[in-house]
Every structure is written in C-alpha cells, then in structure tokens.
C-alpha cells in the first residue's frame, strides 16, 4: 500500500493527522514551557510577555523564579512526592487485585472470555466522574458501609473513611483497575497452555508453575499495566478533589488550585513542566513494555 498509494497520496494521509497533533498537542507544550518562564501579573491574560520588541532592542525576560518557588516552598515538593507515592502503591494494589482477574479471564473457556472481558470494560464505559461520586455515598460517615457495619454491630462509631488517603487509594485503584487487567490479560492469553502443562508434567506444583513460568512470562504485561495506572494517577485531579481530604496533597490538585483559584498561570505552567519531565521516563518505559507484551520487536 505504501508504494501503491503514490507519494502525494501518502503525504496527504500523513500530514492531516500529523499537522493536527503538531498544532494541538506538541506546540501547546512549547507554550507551557514558554509561560513557565514568564512573570505573573494582574492582567488579562495574567502574565507578562516573555519578549518585547522596542525600537531595535529585543528584550527577552526569562524568569526562573517560578521554578525556584517550586523548590523553596516545600508544599510543591511534598505534593510531587505524595503523588508519586500514591500512584506507585495504587499500581501495586491494582496488580494484586487485577492479576487473578486477568488470569481467570485468560484461562476461561474461549466463549466465556468475551463476556468476562466485557464485564471489565463495562464500568469503563459509564461515567468516570459518576463512579467516583458513587464512592462518596459508600464511604461517608453515614454512608452505606458505615451504616451496614453499625447495623450488624461490628462498630458503634462510624469509621472516618471519606476525605482520607485511604479513600484516594480506593478511588484510584477502582478507576484504573481495567487499565491493568486488559494489557495483562492480552499478555496472559497469548501464553501457550502447554507451557503450564509441561511445567506440571515435569513435577512443578501449581505455586511453582506460577512463580517459575507464568510470572516471568507475564512481566511485560504486568509492567505495561502498572505504568498505565501509574502515569495518569500521578496527575489525577478528580479523585483527590472528591474523595481526598484538605490535607491530601496531589500535584494535579495543586496545579488546579494554582490555576483556577490563585490565577497564577506561570507557576501552574512550571508545575506542569516538572510533572512532564518526571513522566517522560515512565512513558518511554511504557512504550517498550507494550511492544514487548504484544510480542512485537
């Protein structure tokens, strides 16, 4: 097709989506980079221009104060560390919950697999916002879980669950679980059943088969799944905003506050730039893991 379409046709097919992504995905990052170096001001828009052309003088004002501010105020460093920690452990929890699910689906009868997969994907099709909202009703002091536990007499005081880090973990694990199950399933379903039979035949107990055959072979799927949870979770805003408490510091929330409440666009841009730099490595790792999980090289 490459050759058959002819050079002009090919150029056209490449350039339409390419140009769109260039203008609306790549260039915006340059604008963010630019803005992170400018100074906030009470104006519309709320920042000073980076360069000025005056007679024959080009005056470029680079303000690295925004970045210095991020280092000096421990709020930002703590928020970054907290986000990385929450994202990391959420990925681990997703793995613990999701692995048996992916394994169960991959080893189910072929005609039931699609149904089970659909069960995993179906929640993903219903509004993310509403699913997070549902947890508020479950976790509130007078919510479903507390009412139930008090009803059967396990506790006599409601346990505070909403507006805690626990709720944030729960929300992230719940929301991103399908992102882990799907690539892991895709990896596991490709493994030849006879590999496990061979291991058993050679005397490995199920636990040993799992540890020595299944686990190593599903490494790419696990890594891809964990990164698919980790990367968006680092910048998550809705979950900490709805389920977390006032002291839950996540960098997505900090950026939001900086932008909407403080109207400090340059600092928000600097936060975004730092987040981007932190995420470049995991994103590149993800691409390798995905191609390994799909068996391409």
């Amino acid at each position: 097709m490459r050759r058959l379409l002819g050079a002009s046709g090919k150029r056209w097919v490449v350039s339409v989506p390419g140009l769109w992504l260039f203008v609306f995905f790549l260039v915006p990052f340059l604008v963010v980079a630019k803005l992170s170096l400018s100074e906030a001001a009470i104006a519309r828009p709320p920042y000073l221009p980076l360069w000025e052309w005056d007679d024959d003088y080009l005056t470029v004002t680079l303000n690295i104060g925004n970045y210095r501010y991020l280092i000096e105020d421990t709020l930002y460093i703590n928020a970054f560390l907290e986000s990385l920690r929450i994202a990391f452990f959420s990925a681990i929890f997703c793995l613990i919950i999701g692995y048996p699910m992916a394994w169960y689906i991959a080893r189910a009868r072929a005609d039931r697999r699609n149904f089970l997969l659909m069960l995993v994907i179906l929640p993903f099709w219903t509004s993310f916002l509403l699913r997070v909202y549902a947890w508020i009703g479950l976790l509130k002091p007078n919510g479903v879980i507390n009412n139930m536990l008090m009803g059967i007499g396990v506790i006599d005081q409601p346990i505070p669950m909403l507006q805690t880090d626990f709720a944030v973990y729960l929300g992230i694990v719940y929301t991103y679980l399908p992102f882990l199950v799907l690539p892991l399933y895709a990896n596991l379903v490709k493994l030849d059943e006879s590999l496990f039979e061979a291991a058993e035949d050679l005397g490995a107990k199920p636990v040993h088969t799992f540890l020595t055959v299944t686990l190593p072979l599903s490494m790419p799927g696990m890594l891809a799944g964990c990164l698919l949870v980790f990367i968006p979770a680092v910048g998550e805003f809705v979950i900490p905003a709805l389920l977390g408490g006032a002291d839950t510091l996540m960098i997505g929330k900090v950026l939001w506050t900086e932008f909407f409440n403080n109207r400090d666009w340059p600092v928000a841009s600097a936060v975004a730039m730092v987040m981007l730099v932190i995420l470049v490595l995991p994103i590149m790792l993800l691409r390798n893991a995905q191609s390994a999980a799909e068996g391409r090289t």
């Binding site: 609306f24 604008v31 963010v32 910048g235 997505g252 950026l255 981007l276």
Partner: peptide, 11 residues
C-alpha cells in the same frame, strides 16, 4: 497517558 491537567492547561 498524558495527565489531563497537563493536556487541559497546555491547550
């Protein structure tokens, strides 16, 4: 995989 806050802000 881009965090939504970054996509939103940059756009």
């Amino acid at each position: 995989v881009m965090p939504e806050v970054i996509t939103g802000l940059s756009l």
